[in-house]
């Protein structure tokens, strides 16, 4: 039995304690494939390459069974917050 979506979720949760995690199974004929969106405080102060490495490290035990991993988002909670709309210009009195 190969790696499952639940395995991926569990591995990332254990390593990164994400506040938000979406794992999408995109497997096709080539083998197990997943798209991942992670929001974690542990990404604070880390550049994108390091964040991706952290996710890869979390999945290392399963990597041999995974055909492809696509990390679509690796954000801090602050970055994941919706940005406020810019205030409209008030007409002059």
């Amino acid at each position: 039995m190969g790696v499952t979506k639940e395995d991926v979720e569990a591995a990332i949760t254990s390593a990164l304690s994400p506040s938000h995690l979406v794992v999408t199974d995109t497997s096709g004929g080539c083998g197990a494939s997943y798209e991942i969106e992670v929001v974690s405080e542990k990404f604070e102060g880390k550049r994108l390459l390091e964040r991706h490495r952290m996710v890869n490290t979390a999945l290392a035990p399963h990597m041999a069974e995974i055909h492809a991993v696509s990390i679509k988002k690796a954000l801090t909670p602050a970055q994941a917050q919706p940005q406020p709309e810019p205030a409209a210009d008030k007409p002059q009195a």
């Binding site: 994108l48 390459l49 991706h52 490495r53 890869n56 290392a60 492809a68 696509s70 990390i71 679509k72």
Partner: peptide
Amino acid sequence: WPTFPQLFVGGELVGGCDI
């Protein structure tokens, strides 16, 4: 880095396809 492609610029890894 466990996957391919891998892009190096100036001798340093920049990342894979997603990055």
